[in-house]
Computed example of a mutant assay.
Amino acid sequence: MRRTTAALAASATLFALLLTGCGDDEASNAIPSTTSSAPSARGGETQAVDSMKAGAFVVSFRGAFPKLAEGKDDAKIASILSEGCKDIKAGKSEDEAVKNIIKRAGGSTEPSSEEAKAIYQMAKLMC
């Protein structure tokens, strides 16, 4: 139950961050995003999310899943989001995307299926 509560807290935190980040489209278009179209280290493909969304995801992930965040740097956590977005945009089923999140978010502690589903929902909102 404690992990489920953490997952719900992560979702609520992420939702609040997303609402805070929503604003006038003209203001967001006036500032070019250098990371959303920058080639990644893997074959020149474009990143799935911009740095602001990745940063919000990292903060939410660390706050909601401290055990899963142990030993992971920000780039590793952000990659969970970007790879999850790729799965979502590729049309993979939720079950398949959640299984991939379990693999990506695992380490010394593997996420429960509830945690992985919460991470999936966070990613889905941000993609």
Rank of each mutant, 00 (worst) to 15 (best):
L17Y: 05
L18R: 05
L18V: 11
L19K: 10
L19H: 08
T20G: 12
T20W: 12
G21E: 06
G21H: 04
G21C: 04
C22L: 15
C22S: 05
C22H: 08
G23K: 06
G23Y: 03
G23W: 02
G23I: 05
D24G: 00
D25T: 10
D25C: 00
D25E: 13
E26T: 15
E26V: 12
E26F: 15
A27D: 02
S28F: 11
P32I: 06
P32T: 10
P32L: 09
S33Q: 07
S33H: 01
S33L: 03
T34D: 09
T34V: 15
T35I: 03
T35H: 01
T35A: 02
S36W: 04
S37F: 10
S37V: 05
A38S: 09
A38Q: 02
A38D: 07
P39G: 03
S40Y: 08
S40R: 09
S40D: 08
S40P: 01
A41N: 12
A41C: 02
A41H: 10
R42W: 12
R42N: 06
R42K: 08
R42C: 07
G43D: 05
G43T: 14
G44Q: 10
G44L: 11
E45C: 06
T46V: 14
Q47W: 14
Q47F: 13
Q47K: 13
Q47M: 12
A48C: 13
A48D: 15
V49T: 10
D50G: 14
S51T: 11
M52K: 11
M52P: 11
M52R: 12
M52I: 10
M52N: 15
A54K: 13
A54S: 12
G55C: 06
G55R: 00
G55Y: 05
G55Q: 13
G55K: 10
A56P: 08
F57Q: 01
F57A: 08
F57S: 00
V58L: 00
V58T: 13
V58H: 01
V58S: 05
V59Q: 14
V59K: 05
S60K: 01
S60N: 14
F61N: 02
F61V: 12
R62H: 07
R62N: 09
R62Y: 05
R62D: 09
R62F: 01
G63H: 09
G63N: 15
A64P: 13
A64Q: 06
F65S: 00
